[in-house]
Design a protein around this nucleic acid. Structure first.
Lengths: 247, 247
DNA sequence: CGACGGTTTGAGTCCGGTCAATTGTCGTGG
DNA sequence: CCACGACAATTGACCGGACTCAAACCGTCG
């Protein structure tokens, strides 16, 4: 386990405010790196493999032996689980800088598929485990990340268990906006690389419902659409309220 | 974050198979202890506070400063989040031996309420952080626990997002049964300390639906009820299939 | 241009929610 | 021991939001 997606990490005083550039794989914000010394990076780098994945390709399968973990360098990825009859639940979207497959079980508990063309850095898990033994600071960092992941997971349970379709979409959009802003980009204009079906499978609704809600929010003036992939959050306050079940 | 509930920890070879008794707080399976030396336990113990909580009492509030973490010594606890209008999502049930409040954020992201009368051991978080610095093995153990938690959380997302009411109840029962068996007790006869409303709020359905599904499963012969609090899993294979969306 | 995948829209259905009434359970005190 | 009150659980009737099935509408790319 341990996939590190849109976790809403609160910037805490005392934490390294911006991880340094990770030379070894050209990722601008590989958060794990901030806990490593240059030499460690070198050691990990020696074992890493760069990998390209085409859009739509599944490069990690639920149940497979968890031999590697990944750093997503470029592109977007969906992480999901399937039921035998094909029903799908997407448990997270990952973007550049996110970590994937940091499992401590012997097999992956989810699958991962590229949404856009993807560049990733693959590390053998053993290598990481050795590093963890030697550099406890890294472990602490991972623990903090896992902690944030868990908080995000509980938030998602709240969404899936108790929110209406409108509230789910609003929550989703606000969550993306906050992520953009945490990365220093404006959060008003969003580019959605995933399809309506992906969004639906992430929010526990159907494609049709997702689409209907988007047009409904547009009619209300809460958002503007330019094609299906671009959303402008026209009334963030309204969306925020909706996301929290008010109104 | 980090609440450690019914995570289905696979017993891995090479891991301590059964944590030694934790003298300091009379818990029989305080998993964190297995990573500590006796002296450390003593140090933690010096700062601990024993605490009794009556059934129905909320002893931990979402948003409060996360100053302590807890070991549940006896009883059952529900962990939940609320929406402003009162809708509730229970994110987990905790039982004897489980850890609670092991947050690495500055405030709790959930509330916790006693289901039955509860005994807990309260430790200041600072103490733990010092210990973690000195004993990396503990950190590793926590990381593994967090990893299992995350896998369980994703399983729950699958349930909340995609399963039917029948499948949810079946999954819930099977999950409880496995937990019992992992603890060395027979999993066929279950005692449910929580109300139907609690179960419903955990599974993202209503009390009425939960109740209807229980009686429906009873009529089908999959379970037997003796009062609302005791369930016998009469046909585990059927329940297992239902839980996975087959049939 | 036509084909294909994704999106939107429409009509009808149904699972689970809502509201309401009844029954069951248990602890308390007369 | 039983009556009572309070709360949980069950059951019923009805409703509605989201699902299903189906058709039309893009946008992009060969």
């Amino acid at each position: 386990m341990l996939a590190m997606p849109l976790s809403e990490t609160p910037r805490r005083a005392g934490t390294v405010s911006r991880p340094p550039a990770c030379e070894s794989c050209a990722a601008r914000s590989l958060s794990i790196c901030s806990a490593m010394q240059a030499e460690d990076l070198g050691r990990l780098a020696s074992a890493r493999t760069h990998q390209q994945v085409a859009a739509g390709e599944t490069f990690l399968n639920e149940g497979d032996a968890a031999t590697h973990f990944f750093n997503l360098v470029e592109g977007a990825v969906k992480v999901f689980k399937l039921l035998p009859d094909g029903r799908r639940q997407i448990t997270g979207f990952l973007f550049a800088g996110d970590l994937l497959g940091l499992a401590f079980n012997e097999s992956y508990s989810y699958s991962a598929e590229a949404i856009t063309p993807v560049k990733l850095c693959r590390f053998p898990r053993r290598q990481l485990e050795r590093l963890l033994d030697e550099f406890p600071r890294m472990e602490k960092r991972l623990l903090a990340m896992a902690s944030n992941e868990l908080a995000a997971a509980q938030e998602q349970m709240m969404l899936l268990g108790r929110k209406t379709a409108h509230e789910r979409i609003a929550s989703f959009l606000m969550s993306l906006a906050r992520r953009e802003e945490r990365a220093g980009r404006p959060g008003e204009m969003l580019h959605l690389p995933m399809t309506r079906t992906d969004i639906a499978d992430y929010l526990g609704i159907t494609t049709e419902t997702a689409s209907r809600v988007f047009t409904s929010l547009k009619k209300r003036g809460a958002i503007e659409l330019e094609g299906a992939g671009t959303v402008r959050l026209a009334d963030r306050d309204a969306l925020e309220e909706l996301a929290n079940g008010l109104e």
